[in-house]
Design a protein around this nucleic acid. Structure first.
Lengths: 348, 348
DNA sequence: CTGAAAGCGCTAACAC
DNA sequence: GTGTTAGCGCTTTCAG
């Protein structure tokens, strides 16, 4: 069954069927109605390949993520899928696992399938590779940072807002000795989080201690290793902020292994607010970054370029907010708890 | 740039270029070499749409999952992507969120993109909807159960093996009072797990207690609710098996909220062995089902149908094994711990 | 407002 | 072993 079948049954030419399907306004409404009836009755739908071949638009949006197994990404993918499909696009998701070889393979796949745009949500760029896309004028959208050029948008995440809230929350509880477990070196979003932490610390009048800036890689294992290292330090902080939730969960686990308690012995703050952060033990205080907002902004930006009217040519600003979600992994610094009940009792 | 460009530069016809690319063996090696050189130099690759249009094969494999946000699925998707891409396929992933409307939309998307096959990994079937695929002769592969027919394969998971190991492990520790938190009603894989549990229990000479078969839905929230309900019972079991890991994590969390300890007050076993099961508090004893094996079997089955030579027409059996992974959420039944240290001390 | 016709880039007969 | 050619199903001028 093809467009000709419909044309024959509706007694019109294939051109008219095509126009009807594509909602060209000049089609006589009566004829259009007749065409639609035949289409519905036969449950016909156009062949996407043929359509893409002739029109040059595939109606496919690519999405490149770093690791699909980090719970942050499936939540993002879900949103991206929902919004893209809502606007008639199909999505092509691919994960790089931080491997440049995979990244290059990803890009090739996107090119081969002639995607109408690509959202690069790896939180870090492999600039030279992405040039292949830019050169072929594929609209791109990045997080945080990316090359500038026509058809390229960057989503700005305000890391500072949420992280400052976190640091202030800790400071308000009485913490002065706060460590930070970083994300991968060179990953822009990770650097930004660290910067935001450092700035916020100083805002609170606290001088950062270099020994308490631990390296990590945004994985469970990285978080465990960082905490293990911290445990070896002569003087321990009373709180630790992590560059993402997976890291924080690793920290929680190492604390548990060491027989220490959170937040009694150490307060912990994560970043992302992935779903399971609600049920960690204890539930994780973390900075929320909306996956839905990110996905929505990404699709919107890509559509603006792909469906490009003149007005959309003028670049929009896309800003993503972050906010602290207080749960139970943060509390008074070690020692303060002992004092507090006394004071409370004294008042009685 | 298209196939004609290559043909011109290599001084051959487009047919020869096509044959070279498709590795038709009759092409003169010398000429083929010349063609490849031009291809490499220009970094040419064929237009997939055109290719699909004429050949009827899209080289796209569909993957329908229930919820991408359950960590089990991203791990499966990763494997599916890797193996499919390795064999030259692109993948089209879509999640149904257990919503029939979404499921039907999913199927439509698969049909529109003319996928060469679909893996339905929802662990439950919406038979009437899938008929649309079967009717159009799209090769299908299911987990556990599915309609029979040409081009339809079913991957058999041996739930019994791993679950029996779990029950025996519990029995060996001295548990006789074991509860089970089920998955969604009507979900075949969930029913199978419950069955396997019941059978294994009887094998150990333990009569199941109906009050200890709790309903759940394979989510964190379901697990929490089930445990909450169990906490209200007059007589509590000493161990609980869960239909999946998310449920078990919910159980762990409710135990924590109730101020009870795992495994001291209750032993807990999950199912799936998702990555974070390693770092729950305590680390979760669970039944491992290999996502990689599942993904590999699914792609293999689909390819056999799609690339269909005669020999592949004869159906293969695909079996997936399950095995217990013992961690720290299981221990002696409540009370037994007190005895043990005494005995140990007595020996000294 | 509608139809005829020319391709989009490629594969697969079919000739040579 | 290689080239010629007829489409795959659709969109889009260009006439009418």
């Amino acid at each position: 069954m093809d467009i000709r079948t419909i044309a024959r049954l509706a007694n019109v030419s294939i051109a008219t069927v095509s126009r009807t399907i594509n909602r060209v306004p000049t089609v006589n409404p009566k004829i259009a109605k007749r065409v639609w009836e035949v289409i519905e009755e036969l449950d016909y739908f156009p062949n996407t390949q043929a359509r893409a071949l002739v029109s040059g638009r595939s109606w496919i949006l690519g999405l490149i993520v770093s690791e699909i197994t980090n719970p942050f990404f499936p939540e993002l993918i879900q949103g991206f899928e929902d919004i893209a499909v809502e606007h008639g696009y199909e999505i092509l998701v691919s994960s790089t696992n931080h491997d440049p070889k995979r990244m290059s393979h990803c890009i090739r796949r996107m090119l081969e399938r002639k995607v109408d745009g690509v959202a690069v949500m790896t939180f870090g760029i492999e600039a030279p590779l992405l040039d292949q896309l830019a050169q072929r004028k594929v609209p791109l959208v990045f997080i945080d940072v990316g090359p500038d050029g026509p058809g390229i948008n960057v989503l700005k995440v305000d890391y500072h807002h949420g992280i400052r809230q976190g640091v202030q929350h800790l400071a308000a509880l009485g913490h002065r000795n706060i460590a930070f477990v970083r994300g991968p070196e060179g990953l822009h979003s990770a650097e930004s989080r660290l910067d935001a932490f450092l700035v916020s610390l100083r805002e609170c009048g606290i001088a950062p201690n270099p020994a308490w800036i631990l390296s990590g890689d945004h994985t469970l294992e990285g978080g465990m290793a960082a905490m293990q290292q911290l445990l070896g330090e002569k003087n321990m902080p009373t709180a630790v902020m992590c560059s993402n939730d997976m890291t924080a969960i690793g920290v929680l686990h190492t604390m548990y292994r060491a027989g220490l308690r959170v937040p009694d012995d150490l307060s912990v703050i994560g970043f992302d607010n992935i779903h399971i952060a609600e049920v960690t033990i204890p539930p994780l205080t973390t900075v929320q970054m909306s996956r839905f907002d990110l996905a929505k902004a990404a699709v919107t930006a890509l559509r603006a370029c792909a469906e490009g009217t003149e007005k959309s040519a003028q670049k929009h600003e896309y800003n993503i907010q972050t906010d602290l979600v207080v749960r139970e992994s943060t509390g008074f610094p070690r020692g303060a708890m002992k004092d507090l009940p006394k004071k409370v009792r004294a008042k009685k």
